[in-house]
Design a protein around this nucleic acid. Structure first.
Length: 368
DNA sequence: AACTCGGGGTC
DNA sequence: GACCCAGAGTT
């Protein structure tokens, strides 16, 4: 049933599948970007790159990938590193659970797989952080096994080839896989996958696709009917604006910081004490309330320092930073709080918003 | 199936 | 400001 549908809606057929593959690979050979993780065959390095590239653009990843390899060049080094150091190297890249999963998976691989990334689908996919995409990517790119990678690029290309007017969600991946499997090459699947992704990134882009440069234009149903710009249907997003306040508490050149919980947003990262400004509240009022709640003490000598903007996927935060002093000793909870110098902060992972405040402190500190 | 989880690039 | 990105895990 599904197959009849395929040959009906696709311009691809078993007759022209080889031609399709040839044109795609020829384009890739001529137009691929030179990227650090394409210079290696080391499965460990390919693994790291694939995880960094999850929901993250190539240009953002490159410096992080390079830096990572200087600190953790192989599986053994990663598995022995402390988590805080791993998170510090990851600082600014976002989705910090990825770093924790990499760290955890490296320990499992050292213990259960003799330090080598398993080449078996189920063993690989059972590792933390390895979902359908990354598993297929490693198996095909590092081990030349015939698995199709469906990422946002490939999903968009296939939806356009098929003229599927829907939102691009992972729920249609099974259908895409079924439609497309008759036309996959039997060897060099890693190259084929990377060619598709590169084409999606450089030519078959979400907006303003460069159809006239596309090597597989003749197979595209969307282009045929002029619908390439409206497939897939864009995601609707809602943005909330949040005002937050933080207290910069300094004593003997050290600042009071606290560690976030090990689950949820920005897990295990450090931050300055503070919190959201509630409705109808002034910034200073909010700071007094938060300090009472978090540290159990009144504050005085509030002095505005700086304001930084920071945007997340779902909301945008304006961070109002105040210097202040505590009236009594803070009620510090175990290892959650710490007094740290600006120098010491360089060893600890902070969210990007906090990092902006730290840069402000460093700048003003260096000026007499 | 719908959320959660960052942050920066791009138009 | 809106939308996107070589997704995975949880609910």
């Amino acid at each position: 049933m599904a197959y009849r549908n395929v040959f009906f809606t696709m311009k691809l057929s078993e007759q022209n599948a080889v031609e399709f593959q040839r044109k795609l690979k020829a384009w890739y050979s001529a137009h691929q970007r030179k990227l650090p993780w394409r210079e290696t065959q080391d499965p460990y390095k390919i693994w790291i790159s694939e995880v960094m590239l999850q929901q993250t653009t190539v240009q953002t990843v490159i410096p992080y990938y390079t830096k990572w390899m200087t600190f953790f060049p192989d599986m053994h080094t990663l598995s022995k590193a402390p988590l805080q150091k791993v998170l510090k190297v990851w600082q600014g890249l976002g989705y910090y659970k990825r770093a924790k999963n990499l760290h955890q998976a490296s320990k499992i691989i050292m213990t259960n797989f003799d330090g080598k990334i398993p080449q078996n689908y189920d063993d690989l996919k059972n590792l933390p952080g390895l979902g359908p995409y990354t598993t297929a990517a490693l198996l095909s790119i590092a081990f030349d096994k015939p698995y199709l990678t469906i990422d946002a690029n490939v999903r968009r290309i296939l939806m356009r080839l098929l003229k599927l007017s829907r939102k691009s969600t992972s729920s249609i991946d099974r259908k895409l896989h079924c439609y497309f499997s008759p036309f996959l090459p039997v060897k060099s699947m890693g190259i084929f996958n990377q060619a598709l992704m590169e084409l999606g990134s450089l030519v078959c882009r979400p907006k303003n696709p460069l159809c006239l440069l596309c090597p597989i234009l003749e197979y595209c149903r969307a282009y045929e009917s002029g619908k390439q710009e409206v497939i897939p249907i864009p995601e609707k997003r809602s943005y909330k604006k949040i005002q937050a306040v933080i207290g910069i508490i300094e004593k003997n050149n050290k600042f009071l910081i606290q560690k976030r919980p090990s689950t949820g947003l920005l897990a295990d990262l450090w931050e300055f004490p503070g919190g959201k400004i509630e409705k109808g509240e002034k910034a200073k009022q909010a700071l007094r309330r938060e300090m009472k709640e978090e540290l159990g003490t009144e504050i005085h000598d509030l002095k505005f320092l700086t304001k930084v903007q920071h945007s997340y996927t779902q909301f945008q935060v304006t961070l109002h930073a105040f210097a202040c002093n505590l009236k009594t000793n803070p009620v510090l909870i175990g290892k959650r709080h710490r007094w740290v110098s600006l120098h010491g902060m360089r060893q600890l992972p902070f969210p990007s918003g906090s990092a902006k405040v730290i840069r402000f402190l460093e700048k003003t500190r260096n000026k007499p």
